[in-house]
Amino acid sequence: MKAKQDFPSINERKAQGLKSTGEPYRVLVVDDSMFVTKQISQILTSEGFEVTATAADGIEGVERYKELYPNIDLVTLDITMPKMDGVSALEKIVEFDNNACVVMISALGKQDLVKKALLVGARNYIVKPLDRKKVLERIVMSLNR
């Protein structure tokens, strides 16, 4: 009888959403658009990430982060949002947790805005339209930094 390991594995690659321990990275998605939240969640969960919570504006995003901390590994943050914009929310999150892994996702790619977000402490900045490859590449890069 053949043992399981005698068969070649067709998928050697580990899902990108899993830590070396095999546990999923836990993600907080902050975006005021239901469409974008679903789009990002869909991309991430298909690679094994766990979308732990979502928030629809900057204030809610900061609150969620504080509640979830330290059981949260990554935040995706929109910029143009009601109540509190993404860059202000980023400042608050970084002030609370200097090691927070935050990736900005916005339709705006203005250079000074990107620069500001990176200076404040964002690990990466993804400009929309989103595609699966772009999102996963940047997020994995940010987590490994």
Binding site: S33, M34, F35, V36, K38, T80, S106, A107, L108, G109, K110, Q111, D112, V127, K128, P129
Partner: peptide
């Protein structure tokens, strides 16, 4: 429905965002 409205709104947001980025440059 809500998802349909959010989707169209996002299309508008992406187009405007990209245009504003170009104008900014």
């Amino acid at each position: 429905n809500d998802m349909g409205r959010a989707t169209i709104t996002e299309l508008a947001n992406m187009i405007t965002g990209q245009a504003v980025t170009k104008l900014h440059d």
